[in-house]
């Protein structure tokens, strides 16, 4: 089962931070307050889209062929992700102030 990385607090809906990191091999644990990378706030599907987009050298035409979708549909998906990233960036800036 693939687990999704939670990034929103289920209690107050604020952005979650990473408190500890652990080495699987020697169980060394690092604790602190670390921000999640911006892309982690996207859904798995959106992250897969970005990975495919990079692998396709940023070509929407190749992406459209791979996904079996039309060019504007793929461009719309990308535009929606860009909008979401921009909103998250804005949100992060206001919360860090």
């Amino acid at each position: 089962m693939q687990k999704n990385l939670p990034h929103i607090c289920p209690s107050c809906a604020s952005t979650l931070k990473v408190k500890s990191l652990v080495c699987e091999r020697c169980t060394t644990e690092v604790t602190g307050i670390f921000s999640l990378p911006l892309l982690a706030s996207l859904t798995q599907q959106e992250q897969d889209f970005i990975t495919d987009f990079v692998v396709s050298s940023g070509s929407l035409k190749i992406m459209a062929q791979k996904l079996g979708l039309s060019y504007p549909t793929v461009r719309n998906l990308l535009d929606d992700i860009i909008q979401k990233i921009e909103a998250n960036q804005k949100n992060n800036k206001t919360t860090s102030k």
Partner: peptide
Amino acid sequence: PFIYIAGAKAL
């Protein structure tokens, strides 16, 4: 159908 077909092909 435009989710799958657009551009010159649709034209």
